[in-house]
């Protein structure tokens, strides 16, 4: 699969996810508690050493306020766009009213890579939850999540074929990866700036250990209103 094709698929995926988010926005925007949007930047290790830029805003859906966001992540290494991740996500309150809350997280992602072994694009889904104390100025919560690589297209490169495995099969691989994460998420607000810290452990679905086995990110968000 060419770089152009991969890029086109990622853009198509991203545009279509925006249309679905648009429906949530128009459902009942007057009931949004916070309104407006926020831009954010985070740096850290998750799974690579990486930087994430994003935008989120609050929308109302079925009398609940959701936070929906989009972000772009670039890992460290060569300064190019061969490795990137685009993600659409939403956080929704599930339980609790005041300080103590449980929130659910769902996300869709498209990831590309170009490494010594293969060029790839993968479409994944995130599911997770956070449970903890949410005060006006700060929050701290336990979080767990599961990220599943649902469809992954791989084109093995010449180096891999020439020196390791000539008959490696290119194509779509199903359910090729899954990562569980367990950790803590905390935030503190210096309105209009919020600082966010997340960290914890990562593990796969089987025997092999993930390297690194942890994640740690520090982020800052700026509230546009």
């Amino acid at each position: 699969m060419s770089v152009l094709t991969r890029t086109a698929i990622v853009i198509a995926f991203f545009c279509m996810s925006l249309l679905f988010v648009a429906e949530a926005q128009v459902y009942n925007p007057q009931q949004s508690e916070l309104g407006g949007g926020r831009v954010f930047l985070s740096l850290g290790l998750d799974p690579a050493v990486q930087m994430t830029l994003g935008y989120s805003h609050d929308v109302d859906c079925f009398n609940r306020t959701l936070r929906v966001g989009y972000d772009l992540t670039l890992p460290a290494g060569k300064a190019d766009l061969n490795d990137l991740r685009l993600r659409w996500w939403s956080i929704a309150p599930l339980l609790g009213e005041q300080d103590w809350r449980v929130q659910g997280i769902i996300g869709l992602s498209a990831v590309t890579t170009e490494n010594d072994t293969y060029d790839g694009i993968s479409f994944g889904m995130d599911l997770g939850a956070q449970a903890g104390m949410y005060k006006p100025d700060w929050s701290v919560a336990a979080e767990f999540g599961f990220t599943k690589s649902m469809f992954t297209h791989v084109s093995h490169n010449d180096w891999y074929r020439d020196y390791i495995y000539a008959d490696a099969k290119d194509g779509w691989y199903g359910g090729a990866g899954g990562v569980w994460r367990f950790g803590l998420a905390a935030s503190y607000s210096f309105d209009p700036v919020d600082l966010e810290l997340r960290g914890g452990l990562r593990t796969g679905e089987g025997e092999g250990m993930l390297i690194p086995p942890m994640y740690l990110t520090l982020g800052a968000a700026y509230n546009l209103n």
Partner: peptide
Amino acid sequence: FFSEWLNDWAWSQQFFTPDEHARMDF
């Protein structure tokens, strides 16, 4: 930690995770 190969390795876990021998070896 800022090298291309190490970040490629970690980044690749969004495609494949080493859950059994074939993927571990890959």
